[in-house]
Structure formats: C-alpha cells, structure tokens
Design a protein around this nucleic acid. Structure first.
Lengths: 208, 208
DNA sequence: GTCTATAAATTGATAGAC
DNA sequence: GTCTATCAATTTATAGAC
C-alpha cells in the first residue's frame, strides 16, 4: 500500500500541514507581516514544532517563496511544441496564465513585494527555475520577419502581455472599489472576461 | 521676508525632515518592514522626537500613505479640457503617467502592497480624493458610438491602460534581471521607450 | 515528535531632564 | 523642542519534560 507521505511528497503529515499553513499566511501578509504564532495556529500545532521542522522563520519563508515563484512565472514550454500558429499560441498562453493566477490570486502582489524588498533572492531562483525568455523573444522576432505581425519590439510585447495578465490581480482592491463599487462578484466576472478580452486586445494591437 | 516654514508648507523644519524621511523608508520597506529608529536616523534626529510630532507609527504612516496615493492615481482632469481628439488625449495621459511614476518608482509596489494588506484604508481616501472613473468611461463609450474606435469594453480598456503603465515599475527587479541581464541603464531606457511604445500599442489595438 | 515554559532580542512608546 | 534613559509589550527561538 502506498503511504500518505509518498502521495503528498512530504516526509511527514505535520511537515505538510506546516507548509500549507505557512503558504497561506506568508502569501497573504508577507514576510514581515507574518507571525510564527499565526502559522502555528493555522496548522493547529504548537509554535515550537515550527522550529523543529524549519529552524528559522527565514527558512520557512524561503520554502514558501520558492513555491510562489513557480506559480508566478508562466509555463509556456509545452505550448510551443503544438502545431498552433502564433496567434493561437498567444491565446493559449494568456488563457492558461490568467487561469493559473485565478487559482492563486495573492501570488502576484506577494512576489512583487518580496522581490522588491530583497532583489538578491531572485538571482539564485532564476537559475534553478531555468527561465528562457530568449526563446519567446526569437519567436516574436521571427514572426515580425515573416510579416505575420507588425514590427513591434519583442521586449515591449512580452512585458505588455504579462502586465495585462498580472496587474489586475495585484490591483484588485483598487479595481474592485473604484470600478465595481466593491462588488466581489462583479470583479471576479470581470477577471474571467479578460481571458478573451486581453487576447483580442493584443492581437488587434499587433496584427497587420 | 518669507519664512522657510511657509515655503515648505510644514509648520516646522523638523516636521518636514521627519515626513521626508518617513516617505523614503516607508515607501521602500512598507509599514511592517519599517523601524521607527530607521526613520529617526534618516531624519538625523532622535527617535523620541518622532513621537513628539506624530504620536504613533500608524499616524506617521498614514501621512505617507496619503501622499503616495496622490502620486499613484493619475490626474487627467486638465487633459479633457483641451481641444485634443481621443487619440491625442490617450497619448497625453500615458506620457504624463509614466513620467510621474518615473519620478516616484517605488510608489506602485508600495501602494499595491498596502492596499492589499488593509483594503479598508482605501474607502476613506477614495472619497476625499474625489476620483471619477465615470467621466473616462463615458468618454470611451461615446467614442465607440461615434465609431472612432472599436467596440471595446470601457472597463477593460481603462484597466489595460493602467496595467501597461504601472506594472513595469512594480516588476522592476524581475524585468531588469530576466530581460536586461540586471543592467540598470538598459531598464531605465526601456521604461522611457514605453511612453511611445505603449501609446502606439493601445492605439493599434482600438483603432478601426 | 510534540508539548510547556522561558530565554533573549527587538521595538514602539513614554518619562523626565535640559 | 530636543535629548537620554527606560518601560512594556511583542516575538523569534530554545531548553527540557514526556
């Protein structure tokens, strides 16, 4: 019989409970806004037990931060291996990315805040994550050469795509209050509508 | 002779030094990441003097937060009173907004983080700031009726404009490292290029 | 592994002299 | 108004029993 530890990939159930609790609290409140006691409460264990599994607050935070980065940076490798054309690839990336962040809506503001506080933390993670923006840049420049899209700056286009996908999550309180009279459901519906709205906006901006 | 207090609009020079120091530290490190001692050092005064002018950390923070909000929300009233057409208005808004934030590049991530931590702080400030998104919404919808621009969703267009202007500042460490090999100057040049890049991107996206 | 109790360090805020 | 000294509360981290 398969043990629970193997299924969850944690070496113990308690360790898993701690990490899940830490994710919830750290991502919502940030490194300096989080109290170890609150994580312990969330995990329904004792505070001393946190330090038994993760010796310091810093180490526990690093585990959460690494997780958050993987949810923040879009995974687009698989999409290029399909037989889609450039516009269909764009559509797939945007749809997947907004869907991903919808499931972790606090990730953007958490990551943005923490990398501004400690930019050095990024250096190591970027290497281990193996991010390759060059592939996407070349893809865009090739489309420009082919004449499929306008002669846009590849870097600007990439930043535009990510901006349009991510920013509405980071600015949720502002958008919800100013544009939707603090109506939570209206905001959520709006976000979902952007999967197609952002796609058509970008395609109109770059198509010949 | 005009006194220094009148010129700076502070009731004393010390009060001004404190507020300037508080802006610098709070905006860079956030409410919970800031130590009163650090503000005192920055202002080159004693810690007790902070509490003499602003009784609590919270009150000092509120003063900084209110300032930050005024630098974060674009001021577009004047632009509508000119004889510009819709595309020229768009261009002016984007150019002014990116210029404004370039002068206060840490404001976006500060404001976004703090309004996520304490969304209730927004309610009061929004009222006193007198922001009117309805004017812009109606302006966009009128252009759609006239047939000047595509039938876009006004709310999505507004969010798109702000996203494209603000996000690159909030994500600076990520963009600078991933796309510019951590070259500070390359990033700055890129940001300036966006004044025209974002404008033409949006115009292409919405023009008939 | 898990707990209670407590140490040790940090930090917001105040008292009181000048 | 400005300072030194200190309080009081919070919070990370550890010691030690079970």
């Amino acid at each position: 019989m398969i043990k629970f530890e193997l299924m969850t990939n944690y070496s113990s159930d308690t360790e898993g409970k701690i990490l899940e609790a830490a994710k919830k609290v750290f991502i919502e409140k940030g490194l300096e806004g989080t109290r170890m006691q609150e994580i312990a409460n969330e995990a329904k264990i004792n505070k001393a037990l946190l330090h038994y599994y993760y010796r310091t607050k810093e180490k526990l935070f690093n585990a959460v931060f690494q997780f958050a980065i993987t949810r923040f940076i879009p995974h687009i490798e698989g999409i290029f291996n399909s037989d889609k054309n450039f516009f269909e690839i764009l559509e797939a990336i945007i749809e997947q990315y907004i869907t991903l962040i919808s499931k972790n809506p606090f990730i953007p503001i958490f990551v943005l805040h923490e990398i501004n506080r400690h930019p050095d933390r990024l250096a190591d993670i970027i290497k281990s994550a193996g991010i390759q923006p060059k592939i996407l840049i070349e893809k865009i420049e090739k489309e420009v050469e082919k004449g499929t899209i306008r002669p846009v700056s590849a870097l600007n286009l990439i930043v535009n795509i990510i901006s349009l996908c991510v920013f509405p999550f980071a600015a949720r309180p502002l958008i919800q209050r100013l544009l939707f009279d603090n109506d939570k459901h209206a905001y959520t519906t709006f976000i979902q509508s952007r999967k197609t709205e952002v796609t058509s906006f970008i395609i109109n901006a770059i198509k010949i």
